[in-house]
């Protein structure tokens, strides 16, 4: 099952669509819908981030910054200046794309840990501006956001939002899969394995990297805008360093270079805190241990590791194979 999810495109898309359609039968009240919506919004960010981390091989520890810019951009334009939410969202998205494009080129020249630091720094600077400029942003206590409306029609209620987010997630996954299969996507993968090698065969590595950086920032920004309108409130918590780490963890947990892995990662890590409440005082320890444990034993992520395991089993290979090899 998971293996089929992990590989062919259409099969995977159909499975995801089926999951989105069937899930409401298990959602007995709006609390469960709420969790599902949060999963969907995180998954949209992760699908974009996975293009950057998994396919282009570039780290970003600052994507919460883009998410936050999307959320606050929409919130401020729509709630403080009375813009129509759709216009606010589109303007914000364009601005975030422009920002990502501007900083992308110099930042993506950096490698490995230096890139990690630069993106982290970028995220922190955005965070500080948002917490400090409280005249616009409401500061650390946050800002109320008007509901999303198109013309006279206002989007309210978890059930409606569920279908909107579900459809958008499907669209995001479809977009990401198409990108990966396109010539640009192949160039990206070449970049991941060897940047110099890719340049030798005539790929403009810098341009490709910036392009993916911008795309991933746009995914994050749109999800941020929607999240702000959906929950009716934004606080700097979603812009903070730790949220960037959460996003990266979702991508890596599900499986780098696996679009469906990113969705699974978002689903598991979004629901985990709700499950861990039973541990009470031990919650933090268990969360840390889960993070360490999965990365140690499934360094390739859940979906690729399990997919591989299933494949090996199907081939009738040694049934007790080590998922790490």
């Amino acid at each position: 099952m998971l293996q089929r999810l992990a590989s062919p495109r259409t099969g995977g898309l159909l499975a995801l669509a089926a999951a989105i359609v069937l899930l409401p039968f298990l959602l007995s009240n709006s609390y469960f819908y709420d969790i599902a919506i949060l999963v969907g919004l995180n998954a949209i960010v992760c699908v974009g981030l996975n293009l950057l981390i998994g396919y282009a091989g570039q780290i970003s520890l600052g994507h919460a910054g883009f998410f936050g810019l999307g959320a606050y951009g929409s919130a401020i334009l729509a709630s403080r200046y009375g813009w129509p939410p759709l216009a606010a969202m589109l303007t914000t998205t364009l601005a975030v794309a422009a920002l990502a494009f501007l900083v992308g080129r110099p930042i993506l020249r950096l490698k490995g840990h230096y890139l990690a630091m630069a993106t982290l720094g970028l995220g922190i600077i955005i965070f500080m501006v948002i917490t400090t400029e409280d005249k616009f942003t409401g500061g650390p206590d946050g800002l109320s956001v008007v509901p999303f409306s198109i013309g006279e029609y206002t989007l309210r209620g978890e059930r409606l939002w569920y279908w909107i987010v579900g459809a958008l997630l499907l669209f995001a996954v479809w977009l990401a899969l198409n990108l990966i299969e396109s010539p640009a996507g192949r160039a990206l993968r070449a970049l991941h394995s060897s940047e110099v090698g890719a340049e030798v065969v005539g790929i403009d590595a810098a341009r490709q990297k910036v392009m993916v950086f911008v795309i991933s920032a746009v995914f994050a920004s749109v999800a941020g805008s929607l999240a702000a309108h959906y929950s009716g409130f934004v606080t700097p918590g979603k812009v903070a360093f730790f949220h960037s780490i959460e996003l990266v963890t979702m991508v890596v947990f599900g499986g780098m270079a696996s679009t469906f892995g990113a969705v699974v990662g978002a689903a598991v890590l979004t629901t985990l805190p709700q499950l861990l409440t039973v541990f009470k005082d031990y919650e933090m320890m268990v969360f840390g241990a889960v993070m360490m444990g999965t990365m140690i034993f499934l360094p390739r992520g859940v979906v690729p590791s399990l997919g591989r395991l299933l494949e090996l089993r199907r081939q009738g290979a040694a049934s007790r194979s080590d998922p790490r090899t």
Binding site: V248, A289, M292
Partner: peptide, 9 residues
């Protein structure tokens, strides 16, 4: 991520 997990732990 492993070392961040360790720090949370």
């Amino acid at each position: 991520i492993i070392t961040i997990g360790a720090s949370i732990f």
